[in-house]
Simulated scan of single mutants.
Amino acid sequence: MNQFIAIRFLDILDILMVAFLLYHLYMLIRGTVAFNIFIGLFVIYLFWLLVRALNMELIDTLMGQFIGVGVLALIVVFQQEIRRFLLLIGSNNQVNRLLGMDKLFSSDKYKTPSNQQLKMLVKACENMARTYTGALIVVAQKSELREFVRTGEKINARISDALLETIFFKNTPLHDGAVIILGNRIVAARCIMPITDKHDLDPTLGLRHRAALGISEVTDAMAIIVSEEKGKISVAQAGELHLNISLAELSKMLENVLHPSDDSDD
């Protein structure tokens, strides 16, 4: 009789896939209230297993009813994290290319920004950082952020460093809130962004950084923050905050998001 356990290639693949999902689940909920909730639910589940092992029928019956609706409870409690996980999969360029969905998401309404417009965007951030002018610029990708555009004032103007600096000038009525850029257009200003629920952030970070991180968690957008207190530039993308980046780093990150062409400004 063979005493060895037969391990197939599919078993190894199964383990790797589960490890991959658990890792990304941890990355999504770490530092949030959801992580503490997950630990609480895990402790309750372990306690239920102990109760069943000890044949404590009354508690087992009561907890069994609770565990029975556990999937629905998880969906309700972790709806934001589930949305972020699905967004992570849906916005993956390799996945979209494999399924042939990359052309479906492309829009002819907003043209790709030119190299000149990209330079003006970086220049505006540089000037605002030098003058300690606070700013929050959200650069959309596949999602057009229509629900967030509706919260602000529509502009629909070409990207311009002068316009961006004017919008975020302290005495203007549009400076409070976020500017949304879609393609080669500044589509709206004074837009309201969702605030992240992460509680392990640096307490010195203000609402701009938390709003930038929040929009990057629930959409595929990239958010640029110019600190009013420190005059530093930061970027939030895919739920990660990159603090105090250089202008060269900002240009490179924008190139990856906007894919500027060599054509002149239209």
Rank of each mutant, 00 (worst) to 15 (best):
D108G: 11
N93R: 15
Q94G: 08
T133Y: 09
T61S: 12
M27L: 15
N93H: 15
L86E: 06
N127V: 15
R158P: 12
I29Q: 01
R83M: 04
R30P: 03
L163Q: 03
V139N: 02
A73S: 07
L88I: 09
C125H: 05
G64S: 08
I44A: 08
L136W: 00
A140R: 02
S91D: 06
L87H: 03
I29P: 08
I44K: 02
K119C: 07
L104H: 12
V69I: 10
L121Q: 09
L104P: 00
R30T: 03
V139R: 00
L62S: 10
L46K: 14
V95G: 06
L50E: 05
R130C: 12
V69N: 03
A135M: 04
N36K: 13
I137D: 01
K154I: 13
L104A: 11
I39A: 09
R83C: 01
A157N: 14
V76T: 02
K103E: 12
N55K: 13
V139E: 02
Y45K: 03
S91I: 04
R146I: 10
L145S: 05
A135W: 00
W48G: 02
A162W: 01
L99F: 12
L118A: 05
I39K: 10
A124V: 03
R158T: 13
G68N: 11
R83A: 02
N127D: 13
N156E: 12
G40R: 02
Q116C: 11
L145P: 00
R146P: 06
L50W: 02
F35E: 14
M101F: 04
V76S: 03
L121I: 12
I39M: 11
A162S: 11
L104V: 15
L98W: 05
N93M: 10
L98Y: 09
K119R: 07
L46Q: 09
I89Y: 07
E144W: 14
V149N: 06
A135P: 02
V95W: 00
L72R: 08
L88E: 01
G70E: 03
G31D: 02
M120D: 13
L50I: 13
Q116M: 14
D60P: 15
T131N: 10
I39R: 04
V77K: 03
R97G: 14
F66S: 14
I67C: 01
F66Y: 14
Q79A: 01
V95I: 14
T133V: 03
E144S: 15
F38V: 01
G70Y: 03
I37A: 08
L58K: 10
Q79T: 08
T166P: 00
N93W: 14
I29H: 00
F78W: 04
L121H: 09
Q94R: 05
A157V: 08
F47V: 08
A34S: 13
V43D: 05
T151G: 04
Q116P: 07
R97M: 14
Q65E: 07
T151A: 01
K111M: 11
Y45W: 06
L46A: 09
V69H: 07
N93D: 12
L99I: 13
R150F: 06
G90W: 10
F47N: 05
T61F: 13
A162T: 09
D60V: 11
R52Q: 06
F105H: 07
Y132E: 01
M101A: 11
G31L: 01
S143Q: 14
N115G: 15
M27F: 08
I155K: 07
E81K: 08
G100F: 12
A135Y: 00
S160Q: 06
I75A: 08
V77S: 04
T112L: 10
L58A: 13
E81F: 07
Q65T: 12
Y132M: 00
